[in-house]
């Protein structure tokens, strides 16, 4: 579903150029759930944003669904395949747009008809009732906002969902709800996930495999079983595991 090879991402121009990701490579199979873990500044979110087309300054290869993506321009077919859920549900919803506006815009942009029925369906899918349709973000809790953000991402009926720390801004009990929702949605819609998180337990819950990143490089790629047993081959991985236990 997603193949990344030799990916470099940088910000700024020389001499101030900062290399955020260096020589990253991994691939995610259809239906798989892949985690990217690391500490802040390790470049994990940057990879996600480069895949989504939110960062232009990258080189290397990003293949989505077997086809290389264009460095700058993404077409509608791309957005129908790949969608993203952001970290902070307080920043990822437009403060002046109601849930209805957000979802109808997303559906409209994908050229979908029958918007009324689809909005109801989307809200049900993410566990919000019809009653939430005309609310504004300030009338929603953090967890509800994140559900709306997930509904928006699902509007395009994508196959690859990029999750950028989707629960780190939420309370633990709400985190559990959202994680369950993500697990259910993957099963129902046959989605592929790439999830960024600093929380190994969350990645362990959602993902099958993961890549550990440090200073912009992928240190190692391992399975979640190995993670559970604490079997990092690299010193840094083992350090992370002990620190978060």
């Amino acid at each position: 579903m997603l193949t990344i090879d030799n990916l470099d991402v940088w910000f700024g121009d020389p001499p101030d150029r900062v290399d955020a990701v260096k020589n990253a490579a991994f691939s995610v199979a259809k239906g798989e759930s892949f985690g990217l873990v690391g500490e802040s500044g390790s470049g994990k979110s940057t990879i996600l944003r480069a895949v989504a087309g939110l960062i232009d300054s990258w080189s290397g290869r990003i293949d989505v669904d077997g086809r290389p993506v264009h460095a700058r321009r993404r077409d509608r077919a791309f957005y129908k395949t790949v969608q993203m859920v952001f970290q902070d549900p307080y920043a990822s919803l437009h403060p002046r747009h109601s849930v209805d506006t957000v979802l109808s815009e997303a559906l409209g942009l994908q050229g979908m008809g029958d918007i009324d029925r689809r909005i109801t369906k989307l809200l049900e899918d993410v566990g919000l009732g019809k009653g939430f349709r005309f609310r504004y973000p300030h009338q929603l809790s953090g967890g509800q906002r994140q559900r709306v953000a997930i509904a928006r991402a699902l509007a395009a009926e994508p196959r690859l969902l990029l999750l950028d720390e989707p629960t780190s801004a939420l309370d633990v009990s709400v985190q559990a709800e959202i994680l369950n929702l993500l697990v259910d949605l993957r099963a129902e819609h046959g989605l592929t996930y790439v999830m960024v998180s600093h929380d190994l337990a969350v990645v362990g819950h959602i993902c099958d495999r993961l890549a550990v990143m440090q200073h912009g490089r992928i240190v190692e790629i391992m399975s979640v079983e190995a993670l559970r047993k604490g079997e990092g081959t690299q010193e840094y991985t083992r350090h992370l595991i002990t620190a978060s236990a």
């Binding site: 944003r49 989504a52 087309g53 939110l54 509608r76 957005y79 790949v82 969608q83 993203m84 952001f86 970290q87 902070d88 920043a91 990822s92 919803l93 437009h94 815009e105 997303a106 942009l109 994908q110 953000a149 928006r152 991402a153 509007a155 395009a156």
Partner: peptide, 12 residues
């Protein structure tokens, strides 16, 4: 802002 990025990802 993230919501602009999100709208961009919708193809806006």
């Amino acid at each position: 802002a993230d919501y602009i990025a999100a709208a961009r990802l919708q193809g806006a």
